[in-house]
Simulated assay, not measured.
Amino acid sequence: LATADRLANCIALCCVVAWRVTWLTMLSRETPASDPAAVFTDEERHLLECATPDRKRQASYDLAFYVRAVARLGGYLDRTSDPPPGTTVIWRGLSRLANLLEGARMAKLQPETCG
């Protein structure tokens, strides 16, 4: 970040990430029953389903379920009296979900390709 061009690239990337987090937060509040395939990949949905405790699992998995699963990864307690998750816990959860995805991809690699 020593030059203006590099700083501009960093700011542009941060703006895209901030937009996605805000969009996901608002989308889950406006249309919680929408299709989660529009937001999350199949791998992400599978990992979020596996990361959800049994007592929090539902019969149907809508967008609200996956957003709450991401928020729980970010530290959201998901108690009945808690307000909907905000951008901070969703950002933390998306960061942790990216780490989980990378770990799952590395686990699928053949042993001879790692290390």
Rank of each mutant, 00 (worst) to 15 (best):
E44T: 02
N9V: 08
C10P: 02
W19L: 07
I11C: 06
V16T: 10
T52M: 05
S28D: 06
V21R: 02
D42N: 05
E30H: 10
E30S: 13
N9Q: 11
P32E: 04
M26W: 15
P32G: 05
P53L: 09
T22S: 11
C14R: 14
T31K: 12
V21M: 02
R45F: 01
C15Q: 12
T22V: 15
A37W: 09
E43D: 14
R29A: 14
A33Q: 11
N9G: 05
A37F: 13
M26N: 12
L48F: 02
P53K: 01
W23M: 10
E49I: 01
R55M: 10
E44L: 03
A8W: 12
V16K: 06
L24H: 05
S34V: 09
A37M: 09
L48Y: 03
T52K: 07
D54I: 00
W19T: 02
L24W: 05
P53D: 04
P36S: 09
V16N: 09
T22P: 00
D35Y: 08
F40V: 00
E43H: 06
V39T: 10
C50S: 13
V21D: 00
V16G: 07
A51S: 14
A37D: 08
L47S: 03
D35I: 04
S28H: 04
E49P: 02
P32M: 06
W19R: 07
T22R: 11
D35K: 08
D54W: 08
T25M: 01
E30V: 10
C50H: 15
K56M: 07
D35T: 07
A18H: 12
A37Q: 11
T22F: 14
A12Q: 12
T41V: 00
R55S: 13
R55P: 03
P36L: 07
R45K: 12
A12T: 09
K56N: 09
D42M: 05
E44C: 03
T25Q: 08
A18M: 09
L47T: 00
M26P: 00
V17E: 14
S28T: 02
A51M: 01
V21G: 00
V21W: 02
S34Q: 14
C14A: 14
L13R: 15
E43Q: 09
E49M: 06
P32D: 03
E43P: 01
W23R: 06
C14K: 12
A8E: 08
T52V: 00
F40A: 05
V39G: 01
A37P: 00
N9T: 05
T31C: 11
A12V: 00
L24R: 09
E44Q: 15
R55A: 08
N9L: 15
L47Q: 01
V17M: 05
C50N: 10
R45N: 06
T41P: 02
C50K: 10
R20I: 01
P53H: 03
L13C: 15
T25L: 01
A38E: 12
A38K: 15
R20L: 06
V21L: 02
R20F: 03
R45P: 02
